[in-house]
Design a protein around this nucleic acid. Structure first.
Lengths: 212, 212
DNA sequence: TCATAAATCAAACGTTTGTTTTAATAGGAA
DNA sequence: TTCCTATTAAAACAAACGTTTGATTTATGA
């Protein structure tokens, strides 16, 4: 029997199922069945289905957020050191590169990326707040750092351009490995590095566009 | 009693609740209760809960799609008439302007915009296919028209840049009237016209960015 | 070895789910 | 009126839901 850590197996199964079927469309029984655990194990290890979702988010989002924060702070520090502004594309890269590269962080990570990509648009207030509580401080840091890179941009413009970028990113996260029919001419799917390069190229141009 | 059209009241209630709480988190009883109709009315008028969702999509998406298609075809025709390419920002505007302006199309339209913004990232295959079946032909037309505006762009680049744009748009649609805390300096929220202008400015720059 | 805690288990809790059935009510045409 | 169809209504369906209980097993440390 592979029963080393029931808690871990529950997190793995919940991560996969919540990403593939959605939170409300996934039953606790489906999770415990896939994890080869007893139905009551969710209550024992986490307390409730919602607390399980919170644990799924926290397990991967806490280290990912720390990495993204470090990269953003590094860009800020480097700019301050040579007395200039941070470069827009560096700021965006500090946030986006670790995010898209995360899908290669072992099995389940790809499902997690899809789960996170959807969480920001989650209708259920309780669920969205669980997620936002974890990522909002980072969004604020990104917003502030973009303000240092683009001081001529008004707060309103910067706010909405950041949301446009977040939309592009989260949509691309949802598409990870979840592919529809491709148009003729689009042969293969890009890896995380190539996708990051394309997205940075696109979003940097949008961020730096002169105001109309 | 306001009982002119039970079918219409069911669509209105379902539209609002599906957008606010999500499809799987909304019960048929909640819909019929808000519509002041009998529980069995959903089965009688639509057949099932899923068929009700499909009707919610179709009621507004069919005319909206027709408008977007006309606007896209008009841009194509105008370009062909004077023997040149369509302009990128005109192509994007033809699709985006009617989409964002739709939230002012009477009561319930704002909720519908949010519902559509989320539908593209819907985990449930059945639901996403109901939606995709309605919008995919338009996405293909948009993809082709962008190819006429930007013939130097590779199919892969164009494909992903379109997805980045769709991500920005759908995220902005989800945010409509559903606002979180605003950062200092961001005072008021833009109307559909102002938001369209900002988004077009952003996405046009991204679309026309030189390849790295 | 024994006691204590941690973990797992089967089973049932009461509710809620989407759906269905059957009867009652309305409204217009003959 | 009378008949027929369209619509509404109340009630129940079986199934699935998240949660909880209490007993049992497993592991740990004295």
């Amino acid at each position: 029997m592979s029963q080393p850590d029931t808690r871990q197996r529950l997190l793995d199964a919940a991560e996969r199922l919540f990403a593939a079927e959605g939170f409300h469309n996934t039953s606790v029984r489906a999770v415990t069945s896939e994890a080869q655990a007893n139905l009551a194990a969710v209550k024992y290890h986490f307390g409730s289905k919602e607390a399980l979702l919170e644990a799924v988010f926290e397990r991967r989002l806490v280290p990912l957020n720390q990495l993204r924060r470090e990269r953003l702070e590094a860009v800020r520090a480097a700019a301050r050191q040579h007395g200039g502004r941070p470069v827009t594309t560096d700021v965006l890269r500090a946030f986006i590169e670790p995010t898209l590269a995360f899908r290669d962080h072992g099995p389940g990570a790809e499902a997690f990326v899809r789960l996170v990509g959807r969480a920001i648009a989650e209708p259920d207030d309780t669920i969205r707040k669980i997620f936002m509580q974890l990522v909002n401080p980072l969004f604020i840091l990104l917003y502030d750092t973009l303000g240092e890179a683009l001081p001529e941009l008004s707060a309103t413009e910067r706010f909405w351009r950041l949301h446009f970028a977040i939309g592009s990113l989260s949509h691309a996260m949802c598409l990870a490995g979840h592919f529809q029919i491709l148009p003729t001419g689009v042969t293969s799917l890009p890896d995380a590095t190539a996708l990051t390069a394309m997205m940075l190229n696109f979003l940097t141009a949008g961020m730096e566009a002169p105001c109309a």
